[in-house]
Simulated scan of single mutants.
Amino acid sequence: MMMEQQADKKDEQYQRMSWEKLKKKIHGQVNKVNVGNIVLVVRELLQENVIRGKGLLARSIIQAQTFSPSFSHVYAALVSIINSKFPNIGELIIRRLIIQFKRAFKNLNKATCVTVSTFLGHLANQRVVHELLILELLLVLMKDPTDDSIEIAVNLLKVCGQMLSQVTPQGTFGKAL
């Protein structure tokens, strides 16, 4: 109601209210996504100004996946659909996940490494992330192996090992060309 009364759309208060409305809408849609309603959620999201709110959308998807890692495949499918329409949003999500993984790996935060690598694995299964990124992750994890890094690598291979074995068997199993 206040937004309707606001005549000047360049006014700072109007912009702030518009931003908060967009933030709530994106966050609400991402939080309610599941296997059965993914098409409806994508339609709702694409009716919003996702270009303006791409950072909000990226943060919302990453947070939702972090809090519900068992739904990683659903969030990866959501990112895949959005990426087909807006590749820059998919790229932003991937960049943020890589930064998050680097920080977690450096700080020896195993839980975050597992969550992020799982999401990246599902994104690779959806062909949003190139398989070379997954192979590089595995290389980093196995460079100086520890119990935790091996566990993270095994988890990653459980998520996308079948795809890797089909797409790059040489990279996965170390066979010579």
Rank of each mutant, 00 (worst) to 15 (best):
M2L: 13
E4Y: 09
E4D: 14
Q6P: 00
A7G: 00
D8K: 06
K9Q: 08
K10P: 00
D11Q: 08
Y14Q: 02
Q15A: 05
S18I: 00
W19K: 08
E20W: 03
K21V: 04
K21M: 10
L22R: 05
L22G: 06
K25C: 00
G28H: 11
G28W: 09
N31L: 12
N34C: 15
N34M: 13
G36I: 09
V39Y: 13
V39T: 14
V42T: 15
E44N: 15
E44D: 11
Q47F: 04
E48I: 05
N49Y: 09
N49Q: 12
N49V: 05
N49P: 02
V50C: 12
I51Q: 08
R52C: 08
R52H: 15
G53T: 02
G53Y: 06
G53F: 09
K54N: 14
L56P: 00
S60M: 13
I62V: 11
I62R: 10
I62P: 03
Q63S: 07
A64I: 10
A64F: 06
Q65P: 00
T66P: 00
H73Q: 13
V74R: 02
Y75K: 04
A76W: 05
A77E: 14
L78H: 13
L78T: 08
S80G: 15
S80I: 02
I81Y: 09
N83P: 03
K85L: 10
F86T: 04
P87K: 10
P87Y: 14
N88R: 07
N88W: 08
N88G: 04
I89L: 09
I89C: 01
E91G: 02
L92C: 07
I94L: 06
I94Q: 10
R96Y: 04
R96E: 15
L97E: 14
F101W: 15
K102V: 11
K102Y: 06
A104P: 11
N107G: 00
L108D: 09
K110G: 00
A111D: 14
C113H: 05
V114P: 00
S117H: 01
F119A: 10
G121S: 08
G121K: 04
H122P: 03
H122N: 07
Q126L: 03
R127K: 14
V129R: 12
E131F: 11
E131T: 12
L132S: 13
L132H: 07
E136M: 01
E136V: 03
L138R: 11
L139W: 06
L141N: 05
P145Q: 12
I150V: 15
I150F: 14
E151V: 02
I152N: 10
A153R: 07
N155G: 02
L156Q: 09
V159H: 06
G161S: 09
Q162I: 14
Q162F: 15
M163R: 05
V167Q: 03
T168D: 10
Q170L: 05
G171M: 01
G171V: 01
T172I: 01
T172Q: 01
F173A: 06
F173N: 03
G174S: 05
A176F: 13
A176T: 12
A176I: 08
L177T: 02
L177Q: 04
